[in-house]
Computed example of a mutant assay.
Amino acid sequence: MGKLPLGLLQQFVLVARLGNLSRAATQANLTVSALSHQMKQLEERLERRLFERGPRGVTLTVEGCSLLEAVGEHFDGIEDALSRYNRRAQDTFTLSASPGIMSGWLVPRLPRLVAAHPELELNLQSGSTLVNFEREPVDAALRYGRGKWAGLHSERLFGEWIAPVAAPELVAKMAGVDPGDLSQWPLLGDPNPSSRWKDWFDQVGGAPPRRYVASFDSFDAQRHAALEGLGVAMGRMVMSKSLIDAGRLVVLGDRYLPVDDAYWLVYPARSKDHAGLQVFQKWLLAEADDYCEHLPVPGNDESPSQR
Rank of each mutant, 00 (worst) to 15 (best):
D178H: 03
A166D: 03
W185R: 04
H117N: 12
G189Y: 01
G145E: 02
V138A: 03
V165P: 00
E119L: 10
E119R: 10
L113N: 09
P118A: 09
L124V: 06
P108I: 09
R112L: 12
G159K: 01
L110A: 04
P168V: 03
K173F: 14
G151C: 01
G176P: 02
A116E: 14
G127S: 09
E119T: 10
R112C: 13
W161N: 01
P118F: 11
D181G: 09
L122I: 08
G127A: 09
G180T: 06
V171F: 07
A150K: 14
G151Y: 14
L142G: 07
V171M: 10
N192G: 12
D190M: 07
S154R: 01
V131H: 01
K148N: 11
P193E: 11
D139T: 06
D178E: 06
G151H: 08
A141M: 05
P164T: 00
A150G: 08
P111L: 06
N132F: 08
S126V: 10
L157E: 05
G145I: 01
G189D: 02
R146A: 12
R146V: 13
G100A: 15
N132D: 15
F133D: 00
G127T: 07
A175R: 14
T129Q: 15
S154H: 09
L122D: 07
D181I: 13
A116N: 11
L130W: 13
E169S: 15
E160M: 04
R143E: 12
N123P: 01
G176N: 06
L122V: 10
R146C: 05
P193V: 10
E121H: 13
G100I: 12
E155L: 08
P193T: 07
K173Q: 15
A166V: 07
G147E: 04
G100N: 14
I101V: 12
L120D: 11
D190Y: 12
R143M: 10
W149H: 04
L106S: 04
M174P: 02
W185M: 11
W149T: 00
W105M: 03
L120M: 10
P118H: 11
T129E: 15
P168E: 09
P111G: 11
L120A: 13
L113R: 03
A166G: 05
L188R: 04
V165G: 00
A116K: 10
I162C: 02
A167Y: 05
P186T: 11
F133A: 00
P118M: 06
W105R: 04
L152M: 07
E169N: 13
E121T: 15
L188H: 06
G145K: 05
A115E: 15
W161K: 01
F133G: 03
A166N: 00
L130A: 15
P179Y: 06
W105S: 04
G147C: 08
E160A: 08
H117L: 12
S154G: 02
K148T: 13
A163S: 13
E160P: 03
E121R: 14
P191L: 07
E169A: 14
E136M: 04
W105A: 00
F158M: 05
L170C: 02
A167G: 05
P191N: 09
V107H: 13
L188V: 08
P164V: 00
